[in-house]
Design a protein around this nucleic acid. Structure first.
Length: 405
DNA sequence: AATTCCTACAACCGCTTCTCG
DNA sequence: CCGAGAAGCGGTTGTAGGAAT
């Protein structure tokens, strides 16, 4: 089929844009919208390829772009989302209004990646570098498990969201040129707030949905159930209903039904291990998790002021129970404008970790260890735990008007 | 003051995905 | 359903400007 050449046409300019070119492009788009990018350069009197024009517009000239230093909150968001989504910069950018994927990508590569590395965290896996210590540990396994589940679910739901978005789009074609999908690429993160109401179809939002106790008895030690119900998906969206079940004992199994209900229900079910006192029969799952006890409870009491997350991990190999109970993020109202929140808040903790360790201090601040991330055991675990909790926290505290959804 | 090195970021490249006839 | 073109996306490169020597 042969790909059409882009910038290799003779006479087309490459390299940095001049103010005059910027002006031409701006003026043209403001007046006509971009329409077809390929046709734009000729119409606008630019000696550039359409692709170059598009990039210049989306990454630099667009009026709704925030430039300059990244705030602390933005940094946190990038790191945490990167842990969940990987190098999917456009997806990450949807969580950072006014920032472009390119800018975020650059910032990650030049700043954050190095900072994490300095802290002894592998910027790719977001796990401590000397994973040897952690590899035999239940916590790391659970953290990785959470991550994998999240990524898997993220991919699936995003595909679903895309379908919905597309069908929405088709019925949305006649708009102001400056707001139309023609001018404003629908997948462009920056413009999503303009494009329409929030959509709650990604794992992040899913996790931001209503956490409910699947069964009271679960918290009694029978097993761990994490269930969440995403309400509002039916908000005039053509989203199919999805029901998912995850088990720690088996690969995630998803059943997606397109049907009557407009509610998405996702359930993670894991087997609680030896960490649960009053230990309950582990049944067949014991084989897979021999040596590991795991327990994750994530509860949000929507109407109450305090939500909690509690996780318990027991490493059978090291016979070292790790359990934590931490304050979940406070209600949205308290979390706006980057306010400090009561002690035990992960965002604050995470922030401290980042900032305090950016000067070459180790990931384990309490242990006062080397820069290679090998702190004293308990602090090491503690920090790693908080790291992942902060990610979950971000997910949970994602603003309801997040452009991603 | 000159040169080298480093950092930051804009822009490019090429592959993938989407759209439409 | 298929193919071509358009757009999106992520990795990589080029370059300007500042810091270090």
């Amino acid at each position: 089929m042969g790909r059409s050449p882009c910038c290799d046409k003779v006479g087309l300019k490459k390299g940095p844009w001049t103010p005059e070119e910027d002006q031409k492009l701006l003026a043209y788009i403001e007046e006509h919208g971009h329409g077809s990018w390929r046709a734009l350069p000729t119409k606008a009197g630019l000696q550039r390829c359409g692709k170059s024009c598009r990039l210049r517009w989306t990454n630099y000239l667009r009026p709704d772009i925030k430039r300059g230093k990244f705030s602390l909150q933005e940094e946190q968001t990038i790191i945490q989302l990167h842990a969940l989504l990987g190098n999917r910069w456009s997806a990450i950018a949807t969580h950072l209004p006014k920032r472009t994927d390119n800018e975020i990508k650059n910032y990650w590569n030049t700043h954050l990646k190095k900072r994490l590395a300095k802290m002894g965290i592998d910027p790719v896996t977001h796990k401590p570098k000397n994973d040897a210590l952690m590899s035999s540990d239940g916590q790391s396994k659970n953290a990785a498990n959470l991550s994998h589940m999240a990524q898997w679910e993220s991919a699936r739901l995003e595909a679903e969201a895309r379908l919905v978005r597309q069908s929405k789009l088709r019925s949305n074609s006649l708009q102001n040129p400056l707001r139309s999908p023609e001018l404003v690429p629908t997948s462009s993160p920056i413009n999503k707030p303009v494009a329409g109401p929030p959509r709650c179809l990604d794992i992040l939002k899913a996790w931001n949905g209503t956490w409910t106790k699947p069964n009271e008895s679960d918290s009694g030690g029978v097993g761990v159930g994490i269930s969440l119900t995403v309400a509002g998906i039916g908000n005039d969206l053509e989203s199919p209903t999805s029901t998912l079940s995850f088990s720690e004992n088996a690969p995630p199994i998803a059943t997606t039904g397109i049907g009557e209900s407009s509610t998405t229900f996702i359930e993670f079910v894991g087997n609680s291990g030896s960490c649960e006192e009053g230990g309950v029969p582990k049944e067949e799952s014991e084989e897979d998790w021999k040596g590991f006890g795991s327990s994750i409870h994530l509860h949000e009491y929507k109407d109450g002021m305090d939500s909690t997350i509690s996780m318990s991990f027991t490493s059978g190999l090291h016979d070292m129970p790790i359990s934590m109970e931490s304050a979940w993020a406070p209600p949205e109202s308290l979390r706006s404008s980057n306010e400090h929140v009561p002690t035990g808040n992960f965002v604050e903790r995470f922030t401290d970790l980042l900032l305090n360790n950016s000067g070459g201090r180790s990931f384990s601040e309490g242990g006062g260890e080397s820069d290679d991330g090998s702190g004293s055991g308990s602090d090491y675990y503690e920090d790693n735990k908080n790291y992942w909790n902060s990610i979950l926290n971000l997910v949970n505290s994602s603003p309801s008007d997040s452009p991603l959804f």
